[in-house]
Amino acid sequence: MELSVQDREYMCSGHVGCPGCGAAIAMRFVLKALGEKTMMIVPACCWSIIAGPYPQSTLKVPVLHTAFETGGAVASGVRAALDIKGDRETTVVTWAGDGGTFDIGFQALSGAVERNEDFIYVCYDNEAYMNTGVQRSSSTPYGAWTTTTPGQEWKKLRKKNIVEALVAHRIPYAATASIAFPEDLVRKVKKAKAVKGSRFLHIYASCPTGWRMPSELAVKIARMAVQTNIFPLYEVENGVRYTINYMPKGYLVREYFKLQGRFKHLSEADLEQIQQMVNEDWELLLRKAGVSPGAAGPVTKID
């Protein structure tokens, strides 16, 4: 089946993302959906580098690189300037990594969303501080190795549920998306573009370098994250209306974990525990979406 995604390209070759960079794929899709009337605010993240050094830019839309924690605020300012200039057409987008979203930039994001600033905030999530060399963030999942959670100190805390945090703001539109589901992703970006007020997109963007896996699996692993319920695809309107976009086939999380070096230390017991956590989160999501677990297809069971 051919995927119907806009042909127009807003990203150039020659950017300096790692081979198989999920964040680069995410950017391509998002810009295809948004088109040229877009301004990108990029706080510190891998994309600060990927986008190219002076005097280059890999994107064919304006880009404003900003400080790490400022994604929500700088976008607010750009939006305000465009508003006062009477430009209602241009979409202002903050393009931040998980560190700049979940951690250091959370305050500015929360502030902007509380003010219902008219912009799209995209978090491309690669689950750690990758640009600085794989340090744990509050987005790093339970079980993961990072350079700051080495050896037996692997992260034993859950990943922050950022979408639910945004939903608690009653944000007009929040959605998860994955580079492995381009049509869903593009549809959500287009939908977000049409909504007024704050919009949040949480895009799962694999990182072969930081996840210690072969680069060719970048998309496959992102797909598996969805198939295993580790990263469900759903959207929430006005903080209350949940829609689950993908009912998984009930793959075991183990399949996802065993492909990545960052999880290689985990025992069967650990994996079982993680499976329970994933099941629990999924059932919680189903309840919020008002779907009875039976109707939603298989919830993964451990044999």
Binding site: G14, G52, Q56, S57, T58
Partner: peptide, 17 residues
């Protein structure tokens, strides 16, 4: 100021391969 005037296309990243 740090402001771009060109694209990244002069970086022949094929040499990484």
């Amino acid at each position: 100021i740090p402001r771009s005037t060109t694209t990244t296309e002069s970086n022949k990243t094929g040499s990484w391969r």
